[in-house]
């Protein structure tokens, strides 16, 4: 999914000779259609979030955000991301190293497996953990016997988030490291560098922008995931609610202004993510070209 996103250097219409572009009215019409489509489908919902959030003014907005349940939801969202993102980052780097620096059988199958979570419905991503750790699940009786709670508690939320954000870092690193090849690392090793030193001094500087790109996309999804987390959360206010779940509860209780106020925080996160992504893309393109 994220792998489909590509940087596109713009080719201006001025660069195209007249007979290879459309007549002016056709150009304007197509631009108008595109702007209208993006405006109605994407910009309008974003404006709605802001306008609903501030409908009752600044102090109502701040009250909604400073509400103890909202702060507890924010803490849980940050905690979840703080566990899921680093683990998936370590996995992504290890997988990309193993897959791109060596030749072995079953490589394509492994890549397909890594991509699996992208094509699984978020609801199923939560369901699988209930089947494993729920009261009726495979490990349910043992967990109850030892008084360990995984689903309808924080560990379940973290696991479901790890599942849905699983491929993000690996997906970004695989094509990048594949394109960079193994010459740099081999040179370092032949000069006597040890494995870890080679990784820190040679590989990491080469992949840092791609790695950062994967991490911020992984983080945005980890903080915003709704379906999977909704299935495994106990929906206990102040305890097992993440920010997206808190938005749902407020909305279903007809507290629209508060709901949109919390939503505006997550929208801000999305915008920041995309701005950073845009800044990184330029660097990423040059690090791919450099090899």
């Amino acid at each position: 999914m994220a792998g489909a996103v590509t940087t596109v250097a713009s080719l201006s219409s001025e660069a195209r000779p007249k007979h290879l572009t459309e007549a002016r009215p056709v150009r304007y019409l197509l631009i108008a259609i595109a702007l209208l489509f993006i405006g109605v489908v994407i910009v309008l919902p974003m404006i709605t979030v802001l306008s609903e959030a501030f409908r009752k003014g600044w102090s109502a907005y701040m009250d909604a955000i400073r509400d103890p349940d909202a702060l507890a939801a924010l803490r849980l969202t940050l905690l979840t991301a703080a566990i899921a993102v680093p683990l998936n980052t370590i996995f992504g780097v290890a997988a990309a190293w193993g897959i791109t620096k060596f030749k072995f059988r079953g490589k394509n199958l492994l890549i397909t497996f890594i991509d699996l979570p992208f094509s699984v419905s978020p609801v199923i991503s939560g369901l699988v953990y209930i089947l494993l750790f729920g009261a009726q699940g495979f490990f349910g009786p043992w967990l109850i016997g030892h008084d360990v709670k995984i689903v309808f508690a924080i560990p379940g939320i973290v696991l479901a988030t790890m599942f849905v954000t699983f491929p993000f870092v690996a997906r970004e690193l695989l094509p990048l490291m594949e394109a960079q090849g193994v010459q740099d690392e081999e040179a370092a090793v032949s000069l006597g560098a040890k494995g870890w030193r080679t990784f820190w001094k040679v590989t990491l500087p080469n992949i840092k922008w791609g790695l950062l790109y994967g991490i911020i996309l992984c983080n945005a999804r980890a903080m915003g995931e709704f379906g999977a987390v909704s299935v495994v959360s106990g929906h206990i206010r102040g305890e097992t609610n993440t920010l997206p779940l808190h938005i749902e509860i407020l909305y279903n209780e007809y507290q629209y202004t508060a709901s949109f106020a919390v939503a505006s925080l997550l929208m801000l996160l999305a915008i920041i993510t995309l701005v950073i992504k845009g800044l990184i893309e330029g660097k990423l393109a040059s690090s791919k070209r450099g090899h």
Partner: peptide, 16 residues
């Protein structure tokens, strides 16, 4: 803006 649906949490899009 084309990438907003990737980055915006689905619950936010849903209520909006």
């Amino acid at each position: 803006l084309v990438d907003i649906p990737f980055a915006l949490p689905t619950a936010v899009a849903g209520i909006a």
